[in-house]
């Protein structure tokens, strides 16, 4: 059973007084990740909101050793750290338990500029956890489109709403045949916690993607982060699933949507709550463009239902 939020460990690795916006989903998610990983870990970041908010030199708002490295290289750099700790341990230069190596990267650093290095690290099955906190845009540079921005969303570089659907990144990572892939989001902290614990205890490459509704990019009220995250799942715009050694299982409540026990909520309410979509309503082709958003969601649900049946 999913760990209850009340049962999460007390330990805090995200310290108070960091520079994130109030209600920041990335920071909220990182806090849960910290509870699962504990202090014996090395954190790698690439330029993003999470770097901008981690504190300014020499201060640090995350209680791990942290390196912010070149934007395109989270995959390869994490491999560098992983191999370094492993060989130093083998040679007797590191004492105690091997630290968990994890990358904490935005969707830009995952879907776009960092895709090549990530794909290669997965193919090598290097032993670390790659987290993508997905706020569906380049938030740090002022909300530009990324490969994770869904169709219809306004960003500063899609001024009439994005015309292309997003990539199914978690599925792409699944196709790399790595031992563990999972999706999560902040409204389901116990689910996220359990997945991180599983990843921590699995050798090899792990990929966990966390949907992170960002009030700034998505244009909703700051206190509504968790509600938005829940609506994303209930509408089927975000599916909670995990795959151990390639075998997909869906988590509640996405499992109910997938097996048809409960229909996904129509996307309209989710769309209306967000300025990045509801601006579409002013366009002459509003109806067809909202239908496109719904179409993308339905297609992904159907696709993942079928994909999960492949277990060879």
């Amino acid at each position: 059973m999913t760990t209850s939020i009340k049962k999460l460990p007390d330990i805090e690795l995200v310290l108070s007084g960091n520079g994130a916006c109030g209600g920041c989903p990335a920071t909220m998610a990182l806090r849960i990740v910290g509870k699962a990983l504990g202090p014996n870990a090395i954190m790698l970041l690439t330029p993003s909101c999470s770097v901008a908010s981690m504190g300014m030199t020499p201060k640090l708002g995350y209680n791990w050793p942290c390196i912010n490295i070149t934007f395109a290289t989270a995959g390869s750099s994490s491999s560098g750290i992983t191999h370094a700790v492993e060989i130093m341990k083998e040679k007797g230069r590191l004492q105690g338990e091997l630290p968990t190596v994890f990358a904490w990267v935005g969707d830009g650093g995952t879907y776009d500029i960092g895709f090549q290095a990530l794909s290669a690290a997965a193919e090598r099955n290097d032993n670390f956890i790659f987290f993508c906190y997905n706020n569906e845009a380049y938030s740090n540079t002022g909300v530009q489109r990324s490969g994770a921005t869904p169709r219809g969303a306004f960003t500063t570089t899609t001024p009439t709403g994005k015309r292309q659907p997003k990539k199914n990144m978690a599925q792409l990572m699944l196709e790399h045949n790595i031992p563990y892939v999972a999706t999560a989001t902040v409204a389901y902290p116990g689910d996220l916690y359990d997945k991180v614990v599983k990843a921590k205890n699995t050798p090899g490459m792990k990929y966990i993607e966390i949907l992170a509704p960002c009030y700034l990019g998505w244009q909703f009220d700051m206190p509504d982060t968790v509600q938005m995250s829940r609506m994303a799942v209930r509408s089927g715009a975000w599916l909670l699933w995990e795959a151990e050694n390639g075998k997909i299982s869906f988590n509640n409540p996405s499992s109910l949507i997938i097996n048809g026990k409960k229909g996904a909520a129509p996307v309209d309410e989710y769309v209306m709550k967000q300025g990045r979509f509801n601006r579409l309503l002013k366009s002459p082709d509003a109806a067809s463009r909202i239908a496109e958003i719904q179409g993308d969601i339905n297609r992904t649900i159907d696709f993942m239902r079928e994909r999960a049946k492949i277990t060879i």
């Binding site: 202090p39 770097v51 901008a52 981690m54 504190g55 300014m56 030199t57 020499p58 201060k59 640090l60 995350y62 209680n63 791990w64 050793p65 942290c66 390196i67 912010n68 490295i69």
Partner: peptide, 9 residues
């Protein structure tokens, strides 16, 4: 724990 190349004024 210490930071490496975060934002520096």
């Amino acid at each position: 724990p210490s930071s490496f190349s975060n934002v520096t004024m």
